[in-house]
Design a protein around this nucleic acid. Structure first.
Lengths: 339, 339
DNA sequence: TTGTAAGCGTTATCAC
DNA sequence: GTGATAACGCTTACAA
């Protein structure tokens, strides 16, 4: 079956209409070799007239390049892959490249399958989107083309892993809170086995220490990435330490939970307690009450950077190691506006 | 550059290793023609040994089919495209087909560009994901392969549009509320220019009428799809109609806003006022307090169905018109559990 | 049963 | 400057 052969316009048709050979037509269209100006004109016009679209398959067969990259993720349904994907897709589109998308859904079998598929499809490179959790096994040996790991780190230091600078993001938060004259700062975050959670704790503690401070309660409250945990931990923390004047939350959901409980407990935000989230999940952070100061991971940027490095690798200039890209503090009312 | 030619395993390599011609090797691998059992064995083993992956480009060049479909969306960042995409990707993966993803971001220029790109890449078909707003112009004439429109309807009745049954979803909600002995039901929803918003109103009113009821206040409160609007409208509605005993909200965000205000006003949910959302946006609906009864659009299913129809069209059996797929009510505590 | 050869649509290498 | 011709990797008549 497939498409009707007849209705597919080929270079031969264009050449015929222009009265030249396919070779000349090809050169004219690709600005290769020397073609007489008027010949080129005729060819271009013929191509235009027939709405000629060069067959990418045939091209790829010769060049060995498909101008396609494979994007492999494990959690498209989550909210981190998408911005990365968008950033990458945008950067690729500018270079006339396309994205083959595969979501392995955390299943190793599925992942293997997709890798084989993508390799068979001759993708020029891979972008592997991980999660903010631990390092993940390198796919290195299985893949004959350049790979860039984004958001989740590869175990192999010879791979390139591109991460958000979680430690730096946490530093921004604490510096901001201290600048707002907060001194008794608590930290409620997700599971301790998340690399991102630990990194943020490290960053936060560093800045606190530089200012002669410690976390309220001494330790962060590790739990889960949910509103429910945010509510629970906030209640607990404020009961034990009623003089807490700021909460740094590990993500926006936790922060929203915190806001709810603070309101219940009669604490004003930001007057009594400042609250900071993480992720800048707009639909939550900007629409809650009060709007949430939070950290933006610059994920779109991360995706775009991944593409840049992938191109470099395709050009024979691979980068290796772990690169951390700065985050950005988004200040909203929950920490008191500058005004 | 492109990949090193040398390290790409080709059918020729396999044939050589097996000591047969490429033709025989091809037949053996594709179970075509008559090949001696032991010959086939040798070929299969050689292929295995070399980890041979047939070059999809070469295959596609011959067959005219690429086993690739283009998925065109306008709002990947929103939360509707993703589940549809996942459903489609899953269904396609089962048939060894892949997805080329393009997000036009609502930009017509970009959309045209992507369409050209995808056509040049010889995709076998398109899935166009729209939004729940108005009908959108058919892309019909520009595309030489089958197209299925999902979530957003095409202007052309000769196209196939696959939608969630918004009217039916609203019916489920109202029937449920009435079964819970609610009689004074208000409706707060998004902008009136959204087709989905209007359809839901229609469905809700139909069931109310069947039960001799009307919406509290007579009219739905059209606004925006935000918590903020949910808060504002709830305050307004309950002030004007203090005896309201149920709120049907146009989406989960509005419902969350409603929950907040109800708490502030000292109304218990669900005891005094039952609240229902729409979309079953898990991370919001399941994690708020109390968890939200809401309507699930079955979007993954929608994506999978789209693929089915696309396959049918590829096999020469296209469907046309508008198909509406049922929604599903997810009952949680905000309307009182069955218990 | 197996191998030879043509051809898918394009680009690259040569002669002319 | 232009046009045969040979690839690219694979499938498929058709011949052996």
């Amino acid at each position: 079956m497939g498409r009707r052969r007849s209705q597919q316009v080929t270079l031969t048709d264009v050449a015929q209409l222009a009265g030249v050979s396919v070779a000349t037509a090809s050169k004219a269209l690709n600005a290769k070799g020397e073609v007489a100006p008027d010949t080129r004109q005729r060819v271009l016009q013929a191509a235009e007239q027939l709405a000629f679209q060069p067959n990418v398959l045939a091209r790829g067969l010769i060049s060995g390049r498909t101008r396609t990259i494979g994007l492999l993720t494990d959690e498209l349904a989550g909210r981190f892959s998408i911005p990365i994907l968008l950033g990458a897709e945008n950067a690729l589109g500018n270079e006339q490249m396309s994205v083959l998308l595969c979501d392995a859904r955390g299943d190793a079998i599925r992942r293997r399958h997709y890798i084989r598929t993508l390799v068979a499809r001759q993708v020029d490179g891979f972008i592997v989107v991980g999660d903010s959790n631990d390092v993940r096994p390198s796919l290195g040996r299985e893949i004959p083309v350049p790979v860039v790991y984004v958001y989740g780190q590869s175990t192999d230091p010879d791979d390139l892993s591109l991460l958000a600078d979680d430690e730096g993001g946490a530093r921004l938060v604490i510096e901001h809170l201290i600048a707002q004259r907060r001194r008794r700062i608590g930290h409620i975050t997700g599971p301790e086995h998340y690399r991102a959670a630990r990194d943020r704790v490290t960053g936060a503690r560093a800045v606190l220490a530089e200012n002669g401070l410690t976390l309220v309660g001494g330790e962060p409250l590790y739990g889960e990435w949910s509103q429910r945990w945010g509510r629970h931990a906030t209640r607990q923390l404020l009961t034990a330490h009623p003089d807490t004047d700021a909460l740094f939350c590990g993500n926006d959901q936790i922060a929203v939970g915190a806001l709810q409980v603070l309101q219940e407990m009669g604490r004003r935000v930001p007057d009594d307690v400042a609250v900071v989230g993480y992720d800048n999940w707009e639909v939550l952070a900007a629409d809650c009450r009060p709007p949430l100061t939070t950290v933006d991971l610059n994920l779109e940027q991360l995706g775009a950077t991944a593409v840049l490095h992938l191109f470099a690798a395709l050009d024979g200039n691979p980068t290796t190691g772990v690169l951390r890209q700065p985050c950005r503090l988004v200040v909203r009312e929950s920490t008191g506006l500058a005004a």
